[in-house]
Write a protein that binds this DNA or RNA. Structure first.
Length: 386
DNA sequence: ATGTCC
């Protein structure tokens, strides 16, 4: 009964992390600050917890009477989409794969009549952000081709119709500028006070939030379609799951609002928790644990940052050139022609995914299905250098 | 994170 991965910080603050998982003090501080917001009942840090802009990332927050759009952040609907391609990993050339991937940065809507029709079919004209649909964005967003490295539960693996030799595609993106605009307009009007659940402004936020979730999912879908077209591959979607979103929930008979910011919902079915570009990704199932109330029915959404973006280049540029960082310890390729970003997203800047997965496992929150290894991680072909 | 804040 692994409760050494359950840290009780206060009676309403818990963190799921083994003693060996790196949790920055500033993140705990942000968790404590957030726990004091009016109506806040419970906050839970995941093992990938790290400091964010004002509020922590890798956490879930349960409030009553009111909710806080700022806790969801600007990238409303950010999440993971995993697909199985029809490409075999048996005899693959990474060079060829990189070449075939091509450039995914330009607005998809401008690529051809076909793509314009595909983008239009998402019915996002009214958002004013149609031109961002089908491109990945910046920060920690990526698209990654992966291959299975280990299967932990053959029966479950087979039950999801997965094939050990099939190349997988993981897309991590969100609502881009559209969600950012929603948050910005909200903050301009209401600041950080949150919205009373019954108010008209709360209803307006719910409508915008729902639209941003649709946009984010459409974006991941188009990115995947674009990549598969470049690779001449068919693809089948295995999962598409948001990790930044608001939902209504009752906990211990009390109705309220569950904010997830970088927290994967511990729902039934297959889930993916990816490591950094130089690390593995884990396919897992959530376990229906007694602890679920303390973890707010959530899991980690990735490895979690260890270093601030602003310190990465200074810490790494003495050890590595940008060109060296375009290969990883797992022999995968990194397509990131943005010198700042290639340092910011270096594997060294992230926690070890094994420590995150171990924490969730020891807390009894997950069951492992399989492990994937990166082949090609795509960030951006644009910008400069390398 | 971001057609990247003034």
């Amino acid at each position: 009964m692994g409760n050494s991965s359950l840290q009780i910080i206060a009676d309403n603050i818990s963190v799921i992390a083994s003693p060996t998982t790196w949790i920055e003090g500033g993140a705990i501080q942000q968790l404590q600050t957030t726990a004091k917001l009016p109506g806040m009942r419970r906050v839970a840090g995941m093992p990938d917890l790290h400091p964010g802009r004002g509020y922590p990332v890798g956490a879930a927050f349960f409030s009553v009477d009111r909710f806080y759009p700022a806790l969801i952040g600007g990238d409303i609907g950010c999440g993971m989409r995993l697909l199985k391609t029809d490409l075999s990993t048996a005899k693959l050339s990474l060079d060829k794969l990189v070449k075939r991937l091509g450039n995914l940065d330009a607005p998809l809507i401008d690529q051809s009549d076909f793509w314009q029709e595909r983008v239009n079919s998402c019915q996002m004209q009214d958002t004013g952000f149609e031109h961002s649909l089908g491109s990945i964005g910046g920060g920690n967003h990526f698209a990654e081709l992966q291959q299975f490295d280990a299967i932990f539960d053959q029966t479950l693996f087979a039950s999801y119709a997965l094939d050990r030799k099939q190349m997988m595609l993981l897309v991590h993106s969100g609502s881009r500028g559209f969600g950012g605009q929603i948050l910005r307009q909200h903050i301009d009007q209401f600041g950080h006070e949150g919205l009373l659940a019954e108010s008209a402004s709360a209803a307006a936020y719910w409508a915008q939030h729902a639209r941003a979730l649709q946009y984010a999912q459409a974006n991941r879908s188009l990115i995947a379609e674009r990549i598969c077209a470049n690779l001449s591959s068919a693809a089948e979607t295995v999962l598409d799951i948001h990790h930044n979103f608001l939902s209504e929930i009752s906990i211990n008979g009390e109705h309220g609002f569950l904010h997830r910011k970088g927290a994967t919902p511990a729902d039934p079915g297959l889930l993916i928790i990816p490591g950094s570009r130089g690390d593995y990704s884990y396919l897992v199932q959530a376990l229906d644990a007694e602890l679920s109330c303390l973890s707010l029915f959530s899991l980690a959404h990735g490895a979690g940052r260890k270093w601030m973006r602003s310190e990465c280049e200074a810490r790494l540029s003495k050890r590595y050139t940008a060109a060296q960082l375009s290969r990883t310890a797992l022999d995968s390729r990194v397509i990131c022609h943005d010198k700042g970003l290639i340092f910011e997203e270096a594997p060294e800047a992230y926690k070890s995914i094994d420590s995150v997965i171990f924490s969730l496992q020891e807390a009894g929150l997950i069951h492992l299905v399989a492990k994937l290894k990166p082949l090609v991680s795509y960030k951006t072909s644009g910008a400069c250098c390398v």
